[in-house]
């Protein structure tokens, strides 16, 4: 079960229709749509990748394989941008 932690250099602002993320170290910023914002909020609560997928399947009209691909892609992007990092827990 893969879990991630949000790095200390990451700032976020959740909005009604998405979220904006900043990385104070890389000086880059990103915007997320509503679904991405929901995933970020789950990461803030230390949800695992599997728990995030299950939550999206429950809350959105999406099949599990499609949700798993989308979550995995976003997590990869967030890791690449050094906004989150895998934890050993």
């Amino acid at each position: 079960m893969t879990r991630y932690r949000i790095v200390p250099d990451a700032l976020s602002a959740s909005l009604s229709d998405g979220a904006v993320l900043l990385n104070l170290y890389t000086k880059r910023y990103f915007s997320l749509n509503d679904t991405g914002s929901r995933i970020w909020s789950l990461l803030e609560h230390q949800a695992s990748e599997e728990e995030i997928v299950e939550t999206l399947v429950r809350e959105y009209d999406v099949e599990k394989p499609e949700a798993a691909r989308a979550v995995n892609r976003l997590l990869d992007d967030l890791v690449a941008e050094r906004l989150i990092e895998p934890t050993s827990v």
């Binding site: 602002a13 909005l15 009604s16 229709d17 998405g18 979220a19 904006v20 900043l22 910023y29 915007s31 997320l32 749509n33």
Partner: peptide
């Protein structure tokens, strides 16, 4: 524009 688009503009 959406709130997220507006905030991204300000952050830039």
């Amino acid at each position: 524009i959406t709130s997220t688009a507006a905030l991204a503009t300000l952050v830039r």
